[in-house]
Computed example of a mutant assay.
Amino acid sequence: MRIEFESVVTLWDARVESWFFATLPEELSAEIRELPAPTRGFGSLRVAARIGSTTWKTSIFFNGSAFVLPLKKQVRQEQSIEEGGIVAVDLDILDV
């Protein structure tokens, strides 16, 4: 399943190391939760993601209201992504 969305980049720094995320729209997240998919840790789904010319494989995680996509440091550096910026994401869900 391929999806596209835009998101404001958010920072979660509840640990020693900060994590940056793009959040999928709640409506889209609700649709994804209804898909038949294998049970994985933390309700995660494996994905292939692309922002600009950077592609990588990771997982999206459900945070209670929407899925979030972690943005690795390498991706943020290659695409000049900062907290509060807006990113356009292409996502292929691999677990369906």
Rank of each mutant, 00 (worst) to 15 (best):
M1F: 11
R2Q: 12
R2A: 08
I3T: 06
E4V: 10
F5Q: 06
F5S: 00
S7F: 00
V9C: 07
L11W: 13
D13K: 08
D13T: 02
R15H: 11
R15S: 14
V16G: 10
V16H: 13
V16F: 11
E17M: 12
E17D: 13
E17P: 11
E17C: 09
W19M: 03
F20S: 03
F20I: 12
F21V: 05
F21A: 07
A22E: 00
A22G: 06
T23W: 05
T23K: 12
L24N: 02
L24S: 07
L24M: 06
L24H: 09
P25R: 00
P25M: 01
S29W: 11
S29V: 10
S29D: 05
A30R: 15
A30N: 12
E31D: 14
E31R: 12
E31K: 13
I32P: 08
I32N: 07
E34Y: 11
E34K: 14
P36M: 08
A37E: 13
A37K: 14
A37H: 14
P38S: 01
P38K: 05
T39R: 15
T39H: 15
R40P: 12
G41R: 15
F42C: 04
F42Y: 11
G43N: 00
G43T: 04
S44N: 07
S44W: 01
L45Q: 03
L45I: 02
R46W: 08
R46I: 09
R46M: 11
V47C: 03
A48G: 11
A49G: 06
A49W: 00
A49K: 00
R50T: 09
I51D: 01
G52H: 00
G52R: 01
S53K: 12
T54C: 10
T54M: 10
T54W: 13
T55E: 14
W56E: 09
K57A: 07
K57Y: 06
K57S: 10
T58I: 06
T58S: 03
S59L: 06
S59N: 02
S59Q: 09
I60A: 05
F61Q: 04
F62G: 04
G64K: 02
G64Y: 03
S65A: 13
A66C: 07
F67Q: 01
F67W: 04
V68T: 09
V68Y: 08
L69F: 03
P70M: 02
L71Y: 07
L71D: 05
K73Q: 14
Q74D: 12
V75S: 03
R76D: 05
R76Q: 03
E78N: 05
S80E: 15
S80W: 10
S80M: 13
I81H: 07
E83N: 09
I86M: 12
I86S: 08
A88D: 13
A88L: 11
D90Y: 12
L91R: 02
D92A: 04
D92K: 07
I93T: 04
L94V: 01
D95T: 01
